[in-house]
Design a protein around this nucleic acid. Structure first.
Length: 199
DNA sequence: AGGCCGATCTTCT
DNA sequence: GAAGATCGGCCTC
């Protein structure tokens, strides 16, 4: 596996980091073994101005605290009770921005991912959504605040992508004009993209 | 393949 | 007390 992506990769505006994450490899080690997957879909959440972000208007609470700190750390939050979402802090300290990962393509440890998901390893539903990829990668609340640059257990390594597409972000229609911004990024034609665009 | 709907729980009002 | 950065089962086509 290649070297960890450095702090400098994450210490840029989220609108640069989010598309650059497409094709990068996410690695997670646990007692069950190593799991690695290519990132094929991401979304940028750019507080404090972005009204779809949890950090909108600079809202700073125990939940959002990590977003105001050093880039390269992990922001975990729960979605609708049953699943988790995995995000990476970007930008300068004090700028509450994150990249949400919405889809990954299994590369290594597919059998581990399939067992966690209780699903056949060849099905795209193994990791084609923010909650599904967290279950497959073994991510939960314990990973809140984890540093992807210094940690030996969760990190990103280099990798390339084919053609990258953009679209509005998924399921944030309540956010008015902010819902229309093309801040979702994905690899065109990849079957692990959660909501495939219309040709 | 796609639409509807209930489950589930943390956070904020 | 309500609203989500969702998922999976069940239904119809």
């Amino acid at each position: 596996m290649g070297a960890h992506l450095p702090r400098a990769f994450f210490a840029r505006d989220v609108l640069e980091v989010a598309p650059d994450c497409i094709g990068k490899v996410l690695v997670a080690q646990s007692s069950e073994g190593i799991v690695a997957a290519r990132i094929v879909e991401s979304e940028a959440y750019r507080g404090p101005e972005d009204q779809a972000a949890h950090s909108r208007n600079g809202l700073r609470t125990a939940r959002t605290e990590v977003m105001f700190g050093e880039p390269g750390h992990v922001y975990m939050f729960r979605l609708y009770g049953s699943s988790w979402a995995f995000n990476i802090v970007t930008g300068n300290v004090g700028e509450p921005q994150v990249v949400l990962l919405r889809g990954v393509e299994p590369i290594e440890g597919v059998h581990i991912m399939a067992a966690r998901r209780r699903i056949d390893p060849h099905r795209r539903e193994i990791s084609n959504g923010p909650g599904k990829l967290c279950q497959a990668m073994g991510f939960n609340g314990e990973h809140y605040g984890c540093d992807l640059v210094e940690s030996g257990t969760i990190y990103l390594t280099d990798g390339g992508a084919e053609q990258i597409g953009t679209s509005r972000r998924i399921n944030i229609d309540y956010a008015g004009i902010w819902a229309e911004r093309p801040w979702r990024f994905f690899e065109r034609g990849n079957r692990y993209v959660s909501v495939p665009p219309r040709i």
